[in-house]
Amino acid sequence: MNELLLGAFGALLVLGAGATILEHDPYKKIISLSVLIGGAIPFIVDRGLLDVATAVALIAPLSTIFILMAVRRAAP
């Protein structure tokens, strides 16, 4: 991975983390958390751990759906 790609995915990580911390609405926080996950997956693929990347990419939306179960009960 060269420096431009590293800067791009690092910027995705930092932007997603900052937006997740600073938002108020739970739905907007979950959307920003999805930006953070999209920045973190290419680092796993770049190390060559492709099985781990597949497993994490399938498990991470499951975790988000679990959070969404609590948000739907409490937010309205």
Binding site: T20, I21, K29, L33, L36, A40, I67, A70
Partner: peptide, 24 residues
């Protein structure tokens, strides 16, 4: 920012991904 269970639960995902990158 909001003293709420759901806010803390969503914010708890950020150190989890940080620890995952640290293990990576």
């Amino acid at each position: 920012r909001r003293k709420d269970y759901i806010t803390r639960l969503i914010n708890l995902e950020i150190p989890a991904w940080g620890l995952l990158l640290l293990m990576l």
